[in-house]
Every structure is written in structure tokens, then in C-alpha cells.
Design a protein around this nucleic acid. Structure first.
Lengths: 168, 168
DNA sequence: CAAGATTGACTTGTCAATCTTA
DNA sequence: TAAGATTGACAAGTCAATCTTG
């Protein structure tokens, strides 16, 4: 085909087969709906957003329940301003506290209230994860999911840098 | 164990094994990062959000590029007010138009500009889906992903109604 | 200057309340 | 009344600009 402009259908076919497109859409849709559902019931049953929960869970598993803000951001894979806004909100709710470390480092500490909120939310939340995901899949499927998730994640992290190598 | 209150560790162990929890977290994290990355480059390269793209893509594949708003909401699995706000924004940008059908039904129509925007965005977007997902996975893995996504999705849709079966 | 932190403006999504007519 | 549409207030996230100090 040497026409200069391909039709829309042509272009899509080059990109992805119908089979691949269907697979992608199934995944994409599932992930959207799942995320919405979890967010919703987390909010309804415990007043926490998914973001809140992620921060609390991360803090709870770190030595001294205390971590440098920047590291927390890296851990969660969040932009710094998103993290900042999130921490500000959680501070005013008393779920965490900010502390100043040496040389303008900010540390984030889990408060008692934060730990309590997490403890209150976790059972229901995890039960729902089990109900909606774990229990739906065979052990094999769950392993497949974990494996392919890690594979995709590696690619995402790798692509973090400049595509074409601009050396410092 | 007949103690009334289990420790936090106990409760978690009951909910999910470490293995299961790890699998879940891998998936959850991957999905977060992936979504962020796609959203970001879609925005950067075409000025469309993921939500914009979903609406445009759905409209493009529907007869006459015209569909009732409510049906579109069902298709996308969106709440009505989310859809409304989204459509309002897209209207002001000229990507779609609203038309009144019979008995206060609202129809959404894809405009030329909307179709152009989609055609401009699609190749890059799909290429990225291919690069970040499709090409990372073996054909088997992709099939596994599709299959398990559909399985989870079935569970999600089933849980839409009252948990205990209220028949029509 | 650069890394880490902060800020504000703006966009997106949610919730709850309201409106309208079959 | 109930389904579909609308609205506004608010929470969450992004981007770009700024501040601060090693």
C-alpha cells in the first residue's frame, strides 16, 4: 500500500490485532471498575481514600513507622507535589505528623490515630480484595497475574529515563 | 483461637497469605503506574485525558457515532454525574455535541473535530500500549491476562446488585 | 546550580441534592 | 414514584513556578 494516508482501520490493524486490542480492553476495563469499587467501599466503610490507605500501609511497615517524605514518594511512585498535598490533608486529620530531620529533610510519622484508622480499615479492605480478586482466581492465575505484573512494571521503570540516551 | 480480639498480624494472616498479598500488591502497583504513564503521555501528545479518549473511542465504534448518554455511561461503567461533567467539558471543546432525543433522552454525537482528535491520538496511544504491555508479554501471558480480567470483571458486575440474590 | 519541599491555579471525579416527566 | 439529567460543593491529582540551602 503506497497511499500516503492510511485509513483509520489500517492504522489500527498495524498497531494491534483485534485479539490484542480485546485483551487490552478487558484488562483496562477490569482495572478501572475494580479500582472504583475498592475506592468506594474503602471510603464508605472507613472514611479513607485509596491514597490514604496506601500511605498508612506503607508507614506501618517501615521501621519506627517513620520515613523520609522523599523516600515515601519513591516507594509509592508518586510525584512530589501529589505527595505533599496528600500529606498536608492527612496531617490536618491527625493521621500522620511531619517532623523536620537534619538538613531540611522532612520525615513522616504514623500517629496513633493513623495506626488505629489503618487497623480499622484493613480487615474489611483485605476481605474485599480477597472476595473480588483472590478468590475469583485459581492459584495459578494469581501467580500468572503477579508474574506478568512484575514484567510490565520492569518495563515501566526502565522507561523512566530518557528514551534516547542523553548522558549527563 | 478463642480470644475475642485478634492481633493485627493475626487478622491479616487470616485474610491473605503473604504470597497472596504480594501478588495483589504487584498487580495494584503496576496498574497504578501504568495508568499514570498512559494518562501522562496521552495528555502530552494529544491534549486528551484518558477519560476523553475513552469517550471518543466508544463513540467512534457505535452506529452513526451517536449514542444515548445513559447508554454511554453504562458502556463505560461511569456514574451519571461523572459522565455529565465530562460531556460538558468535551462539548465546550467541540469534541462532541449533545442532541435531544424523544422524551428527554440526551444523545451524544461525535463531531468532526472529535473524530480528528481521536485519529490523531490513537496511533501514538496504541503504540504505547503495545510497547508497555503487549510486547512485554508472551502471547500466552496476554491471553492469561485477558482471561483473568474477564473473570474478575464478571465478579464485579455480579456484585453490582444486592449481595443476596434479589431476582427481577 | 540542583535536590527536595512548597505553593497555587486548574482539571478531574465524587457525593448528595434537585429537577423533570413518563 | 422512579429513571434519567443536572447542579454545585468539595476532594484529589497535575502542572508549573517558586523557595531554600548544600
Amino acid at each position: 500500500v503506497d497511499r500516503q494516508r492510511a485509513t483509520r482501520a489500517d492504522r489500527r490493524r498495524v498497531q494491534l490485532t483485534d485479539h490484542q486490542l480485546h485483551a487490552w480492553r478487558s484488562f483496562f476495563h477490569m482495572q478501572q471498575v475494580l479500582r472504583g469499587r475498592l475506592e468506594q467501599s474503602l471510603q464508605a466503610t472507613s472514611g479513607l481514600s485509596n491514597a490514604d490507605y496506601s500511605v498508612l500501609a506503607a508507614l506501618a511497615e517501615v521501621p519506627n513507622r517513620r520515613i523520609r517524605a522523599f523516600q515515601l514518594g519513591t516507594l509509592l511512585g508518586w510525584e512530589k507535589s501529589r505527595l505533599h498535598h496528600q500529606l498536608t490533608r492527612m496531617c490536618t486529620r491527625g493521621l500522620i505528623e511531619r517532623e523536620l530531620g537534619e538538613s531540611r529533610a522532612i520525615y513522616v510519622v504514623l500517629t496513633r490515630a493513623g495506626l488505629r484508622a489503618l487497623a480499622a480499615a484493613a480487615p474489611t479492605h483485605l476481605a474485599q480484595v480477597r472476595e473480588l480478586v483472590i478468590d475469583r482466581l485459581t492459584p495459578d492465575q494469581l501467580d500468572q497475574l503477579a508474574h506478568l505484573s512484575n514484567t510490565i512494571l520492569e518495563g515501566l521503570v526502565a522507561g523512566d529515563d530518557v528514551p534516547s540516551g542523553t548522558s549527563a
